[in-house]
Amino acid sequence: MYRLLMLFTFFLFNHVLSAQNEEPVTLHTATGDLYGSLIVPANRPRFDLVILQAGSGPTDRRGNNPLGVNADSYWMLAHELAKNNIATLLIDKRGIAASKNAGKDESKLVFDDFIKDLEDWAALLKKDKRVQKLVLAGHSEGSLIAMVAAQKVKVSKYISIAGPAKSIDQIINWQLEQQAPVLAPAADSLFKRLKKGEKIDSVPPLLSSLFRPSIQPYMVSWMKYSPCAEIKKIKVPVLIVQGSQDYQVQQSEGEELYACNPGAGFSIIPGMNHVLKKSPGNFAEDRATYTQPALPIVPQLVADMVTFIKK
């Protein structure tokens, strides 16, 4: 009986895997090649496609980050969508993982580089005759990148996953007020100087990671975008998804983003945290889910995305 059960489990596992294929995709750019994985439903000549823009920092195509994230969240999401005849393009951003050699010197990198890369990925995939609807989706920081790109290229729909409503300077100021209030006034002053076009040569040591001279061009280019303003400009159907247990982008951010575009679809997913998994409910245990690649993502996220894409 045990042997039969094991054989059945092996057959079922392989059947699930055979329901989707992984295809390598390369985007040629002026500064080097960018690499991605196209997860497609097997034996389907036509399908809808989601291009998923990763979140902040050195986050790779699987949704992992060497700074403490090993959850495989994007990878899981793509394979769940494939079961519903929806393909997903997962991307290593320039400077990250397989796309490392396409990275720019930090002092020359700007937020708009990632927007342009996403536009180019969309243009490349639009040439694929199998693609029906093309959907741009972004997680966390990637929400804003995809939000702006969705205004520049012709797509069918746009999805924000755990995307903030406020600009990055407002978010950082709020975080400092909560976690290091003594630093908040200095940071607010530095952001105001950057907005005026000033170059800041002398930075307090405790704020050097945020305001070091080499990263200032990126911060200036990033904070000029307000998600609340940008989401109002999108002409295609919009879905905003937010987890109720997200310690990085709080539920109120999702609610505020929805208030900026009340015509959008809106879903608060109970218990979902920032890495798209079920949160145990307290901060320490929630952080533990960031390093559990076997822990499944929250099913409602998949269901909400599938319903939105297919309608």
Rank of each mutant, 00 (worst) to 15 (best):
E177C: 02
D169E: 11
G138D: 10
A137F: 02
S160D: 11
D169F: 02
K152V: 01
L136E: 04
K166P: 03
A146T: 14
V182W: 07
S140E: 08
S143E: 01
G138T: 07
L183K: 04
V148P: 11
Q175Y: 11
S202Y: 13
G138L: 12
K152R: 15
Y158K: 06
H139G: 04
L134R: 00
I161C: 08
I161M: 10
V203M: 04
N173R: 08
Q178L: 14
A150L: 09
N173C: 14
L144D: 13
E198F: 05
W174R: 08
K152D: 10
L176T: 04
W174Y: 15
G138V: 10
S160L: 07
Q178E: 14
I172A: 09
I145C: 13
L183V: 00
L183F: 04
A137S: 10
S143H: 04
V155W: 06
V155Y: 06
I145T: 14
S202P: 01
I200E: 07
I200R: 13
Q178F: 01
K195A: 12
A150G: 03
I159C: 01
G163A: 13
K199V: 13
S143K: 06
P181Y: 10
M147L: 12
E198L: 05
Y158F: 15
A150Y: 11
P204M: 00
P185V: 08
K199P: 04
G197A: 03
A137N: 01
I161W: 03
D201M: 14
A165Q: 05
M147A: 11
W174N: 11
S202Q: 14
I161E: 11
V203K: 00
G142K: 03
P205R: 08
G197R: 05
I200A: 08
S189W: 09
A187F: 04
V153D: 04
R193S: 14
V148L: 07
I168Y: 04
S140K: 01
L183M: 05
A146R: 08
I159L: 07
K196R: 13
N173P: 00
Y158N: 05
P164N: 04
K154Y: 06
K196P: 03
P185S: 12
S160K: 04
K157W: 03
I145F: 11
K199W: 07
Q175G: 05
G142I: 05
G163D: 05
P181D: 04
K154P: 10
D169A: 00
A180Y: 10
K196E: 14
I172Q: 14
G163W: 09
A150P: 10
Q175P: 00
P181T: 09
P164E: 01
K195S: 09
A184T: 12
E141H: 09
I161F: 06
P185C: 07
S202L: 11
W174F: 14
L136S: 05
E141Q: 15
K199I: 13
A180F: 12
S143I: 06
